[in-house]
């Protein structure tokens, strides 16, 4: 057999990979886009309906509610996760005992599956907290159910966020603090003026990663509320799954998914531009 040249070898590797990627990513993306112009129920025949799904989307109260919930949830969860994660990282990077054991324990939530964690917390919200005299279950009220989901999602996400902040803090050389201390920078001023500016790249990584994950929240909702009470905790992903696959709205939810896709891309591009500008300033 003739020996393949370097270029031929690379082509033989790359082309099948591109085909695989096309078939399971680009093709479904295109199909989803096409279904979004139909009234397909998921089975049987269907007709083209033009842009009706899209115009309907903007007047559909349930879709509007799911966007509102998802953003409300993602913003609060991102803030909670990053504030607690940063505090924990500062603590875990400090002069403490049992450092590696503590770090090991705080990381555990990251490895556990969201669904099972959701079920365990569901029991805490439904039975343990009310038994402690903290009123009725958080999950049964439309006012508090979304907070409960923030708590569970943050509980899991904090693990990774903390770890990324710790690796950020370790990049700050000790002499920066020593030099700062001579100028009287300790405590809060030291953090604000020295530490935080130096770990901004890690801050942006955490913001981008956690925001993106939270916008796609699904497992916790499946386990805790199934979108209830009164559809107050239906995330976009959950609604697309629920009504698109089991609810006979294949076409309509495809349009919803297309909009969701555009929203995710827009937010990612915005965040990347925003954070890279911040980093340039330094």
């Amino acid at each position: 057999m003739k020996k393949l040249s370097r270029n031929q070898t690379f082509m033989l590797i790359t082309i099948p990979v591109l085909v695989l990627f096309f078939v399971f990513n680009t093709l479904p993306l295109i199909k989803g886009f096409m279904y979004s112009f139909t009234n397909f129920k998921g089975f049987g025949s269907y007709d083209m309906v033009g842009i009706r799904n899209y115009t309907d989307l903007f007047t559909d109260a349930r879709v509007g509610k799911s966007y509102l919930f998802t953003f409300k949830f993602a913003v609060l969860a991102t803030i909670v996760t990053n504030v607690i994660g940063l505090l924990l990282a500062l603590g875990l990077n400090g002069k403490i005992r049992a450092k590696s054991a503590l770090r090991g324990i705080y990381f555990v939530p990251r490895i556990l599956g969201g669904l099972v964690v959701g079920y365990i917390f569901g029991y805490i919200f439904t039975y343990i907290l009310p038994a402690l005299g903290l009123g009725s279950s958080m999950l049964s009220s439309t006012k508090t159910a979304w907070i409960a989901i923030v708590i569970v999602a943050a509980w899991q996400a904090i693990a990774q966020t903390t770890l990324i902040y710790i690796s950020g803090l370790q990049t700050v050389p000790a002499d920066v603090y020593e030099a700062g201390a001579i100028d009287g920078a300790t405590g809060w001023i030291q953090f604000k003026e020295l530490t935080f500016p130096l770990i901004i790249p890690f801050f942006s990584i955490n913001l981008v990663l956690s925001m993106k994950d939270f916008l796609m929240v699904f497992d916790q909702i499946m386990a805790l509320t199934k979108g209830g009470p009164a559809q107050s905790t239906e995330s976009i992903s959950y609604l697309i799954y629920q009504n698109g696959i089991t609810g006979g709205q294949f076409g309509f939810q495809s349009a919803n998914a297309v909009i969701f896709f555009i929203v995710i891309v827009a937010i990612s591009v915005f965040q990347l531009n925003f954070t890279s500008k911040k980093e340039e300033q330094l």
Binding site: F21, L29, G42, I236, A257, F261
Partner: peptide, 23 residues
Amino acid sequence: SYLYIVSGMFVPFAILMMPLVKQ
């Protein structure tokens, strides 16, 4: 090829889900 594949990171599973079930 690089940009094509890496841009797939922005594609949420929600949009692929229904067509993938059919496919």
